[in-house]
Simulated scan of single mutants.
Amino acid sequence: MKYKGLTVTSLILAIIVIISCKTHFETTKSDYKAVASTANFEHGKNLVFSICAGCHYNRGVKKFIGNPIHDVPGIAGKVYSANLTHSKTNGIAPKYSDAQLKYLLKTGISKDGRFMAYMLRPNMADEDINDIIVYLRSDDQAVSAADTTVGLTHYSLIGKAYLGFKGDPAPYKNGIKRPSGNDPVALGKYLVDNVGCYHCHSKSLKALNSITPEKTKGYLAGGATFKGAQGMEIAASNITPDKNSGIGSYTREDFRKAVKDGQSPTRKLKPPMEKFEYLSDKEVDAIYAYLITVPAKYHVVKHL
Rank of each mutant, 00 (worst) to 15 (best):
Ile133Pro: 08
Ala186Gly: 09
Ala286His: 11
Val192Leu: 04
Cys21Asp: 04
Thr7Pro: 03
Ala125Ile: 03
Ala207Cys: 01
Asp168Phe: 14
Leu84Thr: 06
Leu187His: 04
Pro68Thr: 00
Ser37Asn: 15
Gly91Pro: 01
Lys106Ser: 13
Val300Ala: 15
Tyr250Ser: 09
Thr38Asn: 15
Phe49Trp: 09
Glu253Pro: 00
Gly5Ile: 06
Tyr190Arg: 03
Lys111Ser: 09
Val259Ile: 14
Lys206Ile: 01
Glu26Val: 04
Leu291Glu: 06
Lys302Ile: 13
Leu13Phe: 12
Ile239Lys: 05
Glu274His: 05
Ile109Lys: 01
Gly5Gln: 12
Lys189Tyr: 10
Gly196Ser: 05
Asp98Ala: 01
Thr148Tyr: 10
Leu187Phe: 09
Ile12Asn: 08
Asn40Pro: 02
Gly91Leu: 07
Thr149Pro: 04
Pro94Glu: 09
Asp139Met: 09
Lys243Trp: 04
Lys29Gly: 05
Glu214Thr: 15
Phe64Thr: 03
Ile234Glu: 14
Thr149Asn: 05
Arg59Cys: 04
Val35Leu: 14
Glu253Arg: 07
Ile15Phe: 11
Pro179Gly: 10
Cys197Met: 04
Phe255Gly: 11
His70Pro: 09
Ala258His: 03
Glu283Leu: 06
Thr23Gln: 10
Glu233Ser: 14
Asp139Trp: 01
Gly159Pro: 12
Gly108Ala: 07
Asn58Thr: 03
Pro184Glu: 10
Leu304Asp: 12
Lys63Cys: 08
Ile92Glu: 02
Asn174Gly: 02
Tyr103Gln: 06
Glu283Ala: 08
Arg59Ile: 04
His299Val: 02
Gly222Pro: 02
Gly60Cys: 08
Lys95Phe: 03
Asp98Val: 05
Val185His: 13
Leu6Glu: 12
Asp139Pro: 00
His199Ile: 11
Ser97Asn: 09
Pro265Tyr: 10
Thr107His: 01
Tyr198Asn: 14
Ala36Arg: 12
Asn194Phe: 12
Val259Tyr: 02
Lys88His: 11
Tyr32Asp: 11
Gly60Arg: 11
Thr266Lys: 14
Lys227Trp: 07
Leu47Arg: 07
Lys29Met: 07
Thr251Asp: 07
Tyr135Gln: 11
Lys260Arg: 12
Ala14Asp: 11
Gly167Ser: 11
Pro171Gly: 02
Ser144Leu: 02
Gly228Asp: 12
Gly91Arg: 06
Ser30Glu: 10
Ile132Asn: 06
Phe25Pro: 01
Gly60Thr: 13
Val150His: 00
Leu11Trp: 15
Ala76Asn: 12
Asp261Gln: 15
Thr148Trp: 00
Tyr57Thr: 01
Asp254Gln: 06
Ile234Ser: 02
Ser245Pro: 10
Lys297Gly: 03
Ile19His: 05
Tyr118Ser: 10
Ser237Gln: 10
Asn174Phe: 15
Gln141Met: 01
Lys95Trp: 04
Leu208Val: 04
Ala289Lys: 07
Thr89Ala: 02
Asp254Arg: 03
Val301Tyr: 04
Tyr135Phe: 15
Tyr162Val: 13
Lys78Trp: 14
